[in-house]
Design a protein around this nucleic acid. Structure first.
Lengths: 217, 217, 217, 217
DNA sequence: CATGAATGAGGTTTCATTCAT
DNA sequence: CATGAATGAAACCTCATTCAT
């Protein structure tokens, strides 16, 4: 009965998976529709039947990946133990979790890079900016709790902390190739990610613990 | 004779400038040879005469831009006052200078992004990893001085500090589009760069000043 | 059983109506099987089940439309009052009726145009040339009667009169678009058809009434 | 020196000629760019370099053909003997000349048919309606002279006569295929055109000579 | 040195038609 | 009888590259 619908859904899914892989790897311009079709095992025509055009397919892939982060974030912040831990331990968990997410979702990193190079054109077209951002709310809650408890400096700026929280883990993965070469160190080696995560945590905690007056000047 | 050489040099220069603009904007796949030729005012055939192929031209543009950072770094670290300042002020200057460089060289940011997406393929082909890295030497000198003077914690890891120094400023520019949307703030507005620079400085100094035991745990 | 037959007949009919509309509008090459299926509300597969191919469907549409003219002609010439009127009034009626038919059957006009552009290829394939032509017989009868009564010139050529009878009304509709533009007059405005019909009648009657010697030369 | 420009012009010309042939034969939808390229002997890419798109090429072909009629018309009406002949002989010449033009320019007939089926879409896009129409002016001059001389009825309507002048010759060629079959006569046989021209002349002169009261009614 | 026309491979997209249920 | 997914050939168009002058 619904055999056909099921089959259709499977084809659609295969195309999306192939497209995610190819687009993440080569970007919108570098990707070839033929290649996506071949990898997905579907007929090229189906891509147009389901998604209309190469660019539209790209947008849907982008959206799917972006929503995956949202899902993950929601899971993270909905966890019940949220407010009960030590704030510093909680912040450390958050950073480690973000590193883990990025390691396990290389497509996310690459798609966001492509999208920044395309000046967020498709991001805007999909109105992805409006997707709620749980990570930001989680950080805000932690900052408030930490300030209340006197463990974080009172003047810590949420936006600046958020940018650091985004920048350091993301950049580790996004610029891993040029960075490895400049530092003459293989950053994809075992233990590198963990070491980096701990350093970032140290840095953020040091900043949040500081008394707000810069020592010098 | 010299007329020809001069003319030839000018044409070459025009092509390189046009190529830098187009490649930075659209990447290797998105760029069109016709477009570069049109923008440079030169005949398309000249691109092949001088540079052999589109990809070769891309590599030379990448190298030029990358060397520009090296020049700037050399200038920075060769400056005589280098070792005489307060180390914390010196570090702050370094961070501010890097923000300034990135703001003034958007092509550098974008080309490095493309190159990371291309997994440093052309970077390797040009052997750009071997280009000496003055920024790294400068930081190392500062760290040594700071540790000697007891102003920086003794166990601060050079690589980790360097990664932060690269990541925060770079990411501010590289991810400005998606970040602006997620934070619902226009990061290209006046004062944003300066505010970010100061926050990064605070964070790095707080980390370097810490006593190395993480407060908790 | 009969339910199925009825349903099947209805589907067939819907397809034919949709096909007539689309083929008349866009021709054989311009028409899309998908579009016909969508407009008919039937599944595309049914078109092939019932008609074999796009081209075959086109032929059947052509035939249906062409037979519609035949039906109309038969009705016209079979009318009992046929031979009893004044021949001139009868000719005028014929012209007016033909104008009316063409106005009410735009698909006929367009399909005949496509068919002429296709050099009557499908017309031949359907052997539509053999369809008896009542209009011609009607005209012949009128001419004979008119000549007998001395109201029409004796040397009037049946074929030439027939061609005029076909050409003037048909051309008014078939070339209405370019003609409107060249004459800077909107020929689809109210009253234009009637005025044209009367002029054509005048012209034909003047010709038939003439004494056969061209005045000059 | 200008060898290249000359060669380029030749290629352009070849493409236009091939396109005229193919478009006239098959219309915009039926024509294949590959076919035009092959027939012209040019590389397919050149069609796009010179004309931008298939549709744009179609428009330019349409314009060329349409201007050809204008040229011919201008030549016709500029001929010095214009006003001096007998008006009836002059009208006869006009009709015969139009028949001749249509016979010698089958592309013109077909392109106008396509264009009418396309509802003058490209005709409008090229603003061809604005092209001056010498034939109309010629007819107007003849009618005025004829009325002045008392040889043509005073109430003859210019537009109606013009429509007949356009319709009868045009329709002879445009509908020659279906007409031949309906009449079971090969209208492309020798002498048919001439016979038709004379009949049309007779009819128009009879109409113009009539005293304006329709005999009957 | 410089030009602009030309090329052919390959890109995205469309379409009539068939398969499987 | 009817459906909707699937197919492969071919359509329009683009691009990096080369030829002829």
């Amino acid at each position: 009965m619904d055999r056909q619908a099921e089959r259709s859904g499977r084809t659609r899914q295969h195309i999306l998976e192939a497209a995610e892989q190819i687009f993440a790897e080569k970007g919108l311009d570098g990707a070839r529709v033929d290649e996506i079709a071949a990898l997905s095992g579907a007929n090229k025509r189906m891509i147009y039947a389901y998604f209309g055009s190469k660019e539209e397919l790209y947008r849907i892939v982008l959206e799917r990946i972006y929503r995956r982060l949202s899902e993950w974030e929601r899971f993270l912040t909905d966890s019940p133990e949220g407010g009960q831990q030590d704030v510093r331990a909680a912040l450390a968990s958050l950073v480690r979790a973000y590193f883990t997410f990025l390691r396990e979702n290389p497509s996310y990193v690459r798609m966001l890079m492509w999208e920044n190079l395309y000046e967020a054109r498709h991001f805007d077209a999909m109105e992805l900016g409006k997707v709620r951002d749980p990570l930001r709310r989680a950080l805000r809650a932690l900052l408030e709790q930490g300030k209340r408890e006197g463990r974080f400096r009172a003047d810590a700026d949420e936006q600046q902390v958020l940018m650091t929280l985004f920048a350091c883990p993301f950049n580790f993965f996004s610029n891993i190739h040029t960075m490895s070469r400049v530092m003459q160190t293989d950053l994809s080696a075992d233990g590198m990610i963990e070491a980096r995560a701990e350093a970032v945590i140290d840095m953020m905690l040091a900043y949040l613990a500081a008394d707000g007056k810069r020592a010098l000047q």
